[in-house]
Amino acid sequence: MSQYRQIIQQGLWQNNPGLVQLLGLCPLLATSSSLTNALGLGLATMLVLAATNAVISMVRHQVPNEIRIPVFVMIIAAVVTAIEQLMHAYTFELYQSLGIFIPLIVTNCVVIGRAEAFASKNSVLASTFDGLMMGLGFCLVLATLGAVREVLGQGTLFAGAELLFGDWAKVLKITVYQSDSHLLLAILPPGAFLVLGFVIAAKNAIEARRKAKQPAAASTVQRARVTQAGS
């Protein structure tokens, strides 16, 4: 089971796609202006990741090495399109507010990255699980970002949750504080960059503190930093 624990750890913290690998930044910043949007795209990405990882792991023995990238890309594009259509049909307004960032999941390099790095080498079950965890890690970062930005910029949480979950979700909306002037900065583009910068710094700080507490244990963890990559 240690493999799965490893996958969880990697996906959610050690090698978190949003905070450590800095992959998929575009949707991370673009769709995190509210928690609802963030969750919507986060869940979509998670689904895509799990699905593509599963499919790619299934066909990994059939696809020769030379053409694996084009095949992967095609699979990803197909899965993304399918999910896009489903969202279009059943979460119509969310689909509209996420705009082109749903099709852009195709170029989210977390997806192709996991396909390459994990799914093409591991069993279907492990790959699906890895996709889920990486997706969850990504989704959590997205949600954190969305929550922080929404609270700062609008004073609410889960505004418009009904777009994602249906009408019952209107009760989810929480008004954190009431004011005439919110910190608009947070929901504008600059705020996205700044908040993510701070979230990453917070992670670094936590990590540093942990390391300081148990220097021996921490040194064994190998962290992959993948900042050099396409989007």
């Binding site: 005439d180 002037s181 919110h182 910190l183 608009l184 900065l185 504008l188 600059p190």
Partner: peptide, 8 residues
């Protein structure tokens, strides 16, 4: 920052 956050 102030101008875009608190334009009024």
């Amino acid at each position: 920052m102030l101008l875009i956050s608190f334009p009024t």
